[in-house]
C-alpha cells in the first residue's frame, strides 16, 4: 500500500502540543452522516425520497383538477399537456391521483413504522430488561404470533374489519411489531450488563430512566434501520391488499387501487397502470437503498 507523504504533517515540537488532537472530534451521528454521504446509491435514494415527498405534498396542487371529481367527457385520455399522466375511466386526472396516492402510501408506511416502533420498543425492552420468566413468557407469546403467516393474517383482518385506512394500519401492525421487539430485546440483553448500566443503577436510577437514558439510545442504530426497512414493506403490503381488492374505499386513491383499476385496461390504456406502478417501485426502491445505506453507515462492521 502506498501512503503519500503529504498525509503526514508536523503538529509541533512542544510536548504539550504533541498530544493535541488536530482534527475536530466527530460525534457518532456526524460520523454516520459522513459514511452515509459516501454511499452514492444511498444518497441517490435520499434525493429521490426527497423529491417523492415534495411531490406528495405539493403534487396534488399543481393541476387544476382534484382527485375525486369525475369528468365523463374526458375519460381514458392519454397523457397530454392537459392531463400530464392522462385520465382514468371516470375522467379523473391520473397525475393528481398519483400524488394523492403517494400521500396515502407514505402515510401508511410511516404510521406502521411508528406503531411498530412504539409497541416493539416497549415489549422488547421490558422483555429483555426484566429477563427470567417475564422474558420467557413475553417472547414465547411473540414466537407463537410470529408463526402466523403475516400476509394471510392481514388479509383475514381486512376481510373482517372492513376496508379502510385505519383497519389497514391496524392489520399491518398487529404482528408487525414482533420484529422490532426481537431486535430491541437482543440489544437490551447485550447492553444491560454493561458497566455504565450498573453505574446508573448504583446511582439510584430507576428502570424507566435506565431504559430511556441508556438502553434505548444505545439501541438506536438497529431500531432506526428496522424502521426504515419497515416502511417499504408496509407500502408494498398496502399496494398488494388494494390490488386484490381489499384496500381503500373509492374515491380515495392509493397506488394499489389505481393499479387494480388500471389492470383490466392494460391493453388499451397502459398509462393508468404504469404511473402508479412506477411510483410504487421507485418509492420502495428509495426506502430500501436508504435503509441499506443507513445500516452500513451506522455499523460499518456489517458492510460487505
Amino acid at each position: 500500500m502506498q501512503i503519500s507523504k503529504d498525509k503526514f504533517q508536523l503538529v509541533g515540537t512542544k510536548i504539550s502540543e504533541a498530544e493535541k488532537i488536530s482534527k475536530p472530534s466527530l460525534s457518532f451521528w456526524k460520523d454516520v452522516f459522513i459514511r452515509f454521504r459516501k454511499n452514492k446509491l444511498a444518497m441517490f435514494g435520499l434525493v429521490l425520497l426527497g423529491v417523492l415527498i415534495f411531490m406528495a405534498i405539493f403534487g396534488p396542487y399543481m393541476t387544476e383538477y382534484d382527485y375525486r371529481t369525475n369528468d365523463l367527457t374526458n375519460k381514458n385520455q392519454s397523457p397530454s399537456s392537459e392531463h400530464w399522466f392522462g385520465t382514468d375511466d371516470l375522467g379523473r386526472d391520473v397525475f393528481t391521483r398519483t400524488w394523492e396516492g403517494a400521500r396515502i402510501s407514505i402515510f401508511i408506511g410511516a404510521a406502521a413504522a411508528l406503531i411498530d416502533l412504539f409497541i416493539g420498543v416497549l415489549w422488547g425492552g421490558i422483555s429483555g430488561y426484566k429477563g427470567g420468566r417475564t422474558d420467557e413468557f413475553m417472547m414465547r407469546f411473540a414466537d407463537v404470533l410470529y408463526g402466523v403467516p403475516y400476509l394471510l393474517l392481514v388479509i383475514l383482518l381486512m376481510v373482517v374489519l372492513g376496508q379502510g385506512l385505519g383497519t389497514m394500519i391496524l392489520a399491518m401492525t398487529i404482528t408487525g411489531w414482533i420484529n422490532m421487539a426481537r431486535i430491541v430485546r437482543g440489544q437490551v440483553l447485550s447492553l444491560k450488563n454493561q458497566e455504565y448500566v450498573l453505574a446508573a443503577k448504583t446511582l439510584g436510577a430507576n428502570t424507566s430512566r435506565i431504559m430511556a437514558k441508556h438502553l434505548i439510545p444505545n439501541s438506536m442504530a438497529p431500531i432506526l434501520v428496522t424502521m426504515t426497512l419497515t416502511i417499504p414493506s408496509a407500502i408494498f403490503t398496502e399496494a398488494f391488499l388494494s390490488f386484490i381488492g381489499l384496500g381503500l374505499t373509492p374515491p380515495l386513491a392509493s397506488w394499489g387501487t389505481m393499479a387494480n383499476d388500471g389492470l383490466p385496461a392494460l391493453r388499451y390504456y397502459p398509462w393508468r397502470l404504469f404511473f402508479p406502478a412506477i411510483f410504487i417501485s421507485l418509492t420502495i426502491f428509495a426506502f430500501n437503498v436508504v435503509g441499506d445505506g443507513l445500516r452500513d453507515a451506522l455499523d460499518p462492521r456489517l458492510r460487505k
Binding site: 398488494f240 393499479a259 426502491f285
Partner: peptide
C-alpha cells in the same frame, strides 16, 4: 437485485405481460 426487491411481483407481472406478451 435491488430492482428485483423494489418492484413488487404484481407490477413485474403486468410489465412482463404488457411488453413481452401484448
Amino acid at each position: 437485485a435491488v430492482a428485483g426487491i423494489s418492484v413488487p411481483s404484481f407490477i413485474m407481472a403486468t410489465f412482463l405481460q404488457y411488453f413481452l406478451a401484448i
